[in-house]
Design a protein around this nucleic acid. Structure first.
Lengths: 234, 234
DNA sequence: TTCACATTTTTGTTGCATCAAAAAAACATG
DNA sequence: CATGTTTTTTTGATGCAACAAAAATGTGAA
């Protein structure tokens, strides 16, 4: 009988007890806006914050630097980066390419259950906006997007996209709540759902790309307004 | 005077003495085919191999796992992965999206000097193939591609693409030298150069996408042939 | 105040020991 | 031989200390 190749199913990271835990924890904090651009993160600080020793804390920071969620501002100093417009543009371009791809591939697996899940997330977004729970709206928006991307069945693609969201996440929270208020995404989300129903790959891609572009314009605008206000205030 | 925002130019990784060195070294070895799929890598082995202590060795392995260049086959075992067809397909899709993007963006910066550089690399590829230095041909092929992508001016995009090349790199060497022999890329490379000369973004993208697709077909074919041979040999 | 320089404090890197857990080897049993 | 079981060996994670290097702070001159 033919020997089966070794089982290599476990491509994902081992939940390395502390190191992985510290990484996830810090990632969550970054996305939730626990830190502001410019904040300095030290091994010892993270170590105390999470009550682990230096090694897992160091692992977490290292990995966040690899992700681009933290950057070196000097040889021994990592900070939460200020997202410059050029960074945002680069990330947006990559998002268009990768999330567009994921959306196009998602139609293959667009079952009724999947559609219903999307409807549910959209309902949650709408409800959150109605009740001015902007933070929740942002969260459900992420759920909506990744529910689609997950249908692509491409784990590494998912991971890359998640890294891109992480990178904007930190600076993103600075724009709260104007950004969530705008409801810019509703129409695009509807289009995306319909595209999945019709199993139209091009339409799904277009809907997601539109959503990303609209979001980018929003962010740029709000960001510019703030800068304007800051300047005139001096 | 307006305070300039902190200089955050240094987005790249600090050349952390040993840890970064170990990572680069192992990366190079993987690309060069020093290890075969299935090989087990341990901290202590890497530590001795590079004559550093466990910490930098561990850092290097961790990072390669994040890149996907190594995977866990069990809780305490990292190996060089066997690239399955589904993996290759996923990577190819991502390559099409990201390298297509980079190619399209490259035309903005397609100076004469840049074009000349490309011509030079292509000449090196051709020369290497003529002289049956297939390994060099592979190397110059990489130089050619990244010379184009670098013109996009997007550092993170570059980094992501590099990670994808790293992932195929290891299994790639198993297909040597049939893969390099085929000269599949020459025509596509010429098209890419012409597209840059004409500053035609769509054409540049098409040329690179074609190259990637042709390469994918080649790999699939050679890989299938080998499997066939292995089966009939028993 | 601003700038250059000296001093003090903080910090990341590295190496290493420990230990539970996993892998590999040895062994026994059918 | 194959297969399940026990024993031995190997392994990664973790915590920690030492130290050089960098950052922060303090100081003084212009």
């Amino acid at each position: 009988m033919e020997m089966a190749p070794e089982d290599e199913g476990n491509h994902q990271h081992q939940p390395n007890r502390l190191g992985e835990m510290a990484y996830r924890n810090m990632k969550e904090r970054l996305i939730r806006g626990a830190f502001s651009p410019g904040d300095k993160l030290t091994i010892r600080a993270v170590s105390e914050m999470l009550d682990v020793s230096s090694t897992p804390a160091r692992d977490a920071i290292n990995r966040l630097v690899i992700d681009g969620a933290l950057i070196y501002s000097g040889p021994k100093t990592v900070i939460v980066p200020h997202l410059r417009l050029s960074d945002l543009e680069e990330i947006t371009q990559m998002r268009l390419a990768l999330e567009g791809l994921a959306a196009a591939l998602s139609i293959k697996a667009a079952s009724e259950a999947a559609i219903e899940e999307l409807e549910l997330f959209q309902a949650k977004i709408d409800a959150a906006l109605d009740e001015k729970r902007y933070f929740d709206a942002l969260w459900h928006n992420k759920e909506f997007h990744f529910a689609i991307y997950r249908l692509s069945g491409m784990p590494y693609l998912l991971q890359m996209i998640e890294t891109l969201w992480l990178r904007v996440g930190a600076s993103f929270n600075g724009l709260y709540p104007e950004f969530s208020e705008t409801r810019y995404g509703a129409r695009n989300h509807r289009s995306a759902i319909e595209a999945l129903v019709e199993k139209d790959a091009a339409a799904a891609r277009a809907a997601i790309e539109n959503d990303i572009r609209d979001g980018f314009r929003q962010m740029k605008k709000i960001s510019a307004d703030r800068d304007q206000r800051n300047l005139s205030r001096r």
